[in-house]
């Protein structure tokens, strides 16, 4: 399955959003996930099934003025 992750197409064998985030080893506390334009809260990650062609934005807050 292919996902569009932060603008880049990536091959992915993960079934759920939670698996993908674990696989990538991301800092969960800071992570904001937008799936096809909608924010997915952390408690929904395990139940969120990924589909071919899904567009994911993985975001976080950074320093800024």
């Amino acid at each position: 399955m292919h996902l569009i992750l932060n603008g880049n197409t990536e091959e992915c064998a993960c079934t759920t959003l939670a698996e993908l985030i674990d696989h990538k080893g991301l800092h969960k506390e800071a992570l904001i996930v937008e799936l096809n334009g909608a924010i997915i809260k952390q408690e929904q990650w395990p139940a969120t099934t990924l589909q071919d062609g899904d567009q994911l934005e993985l975001l976080n807050f950074v320093g800024g003025g």
Partner: peptide, 19 residues
């Protein structure tokens, strides 16, 4: 205090600025 929102940088470990 202000902060910005960006895509994560997959090459550096993310840090939670809100902490």
């Amino acid at each position: 205090i202000t902060m910005a929102l960006r895509r994560i940088d997959s090459h550096t470990p993310t840090e939670n600025i809100l902490e």
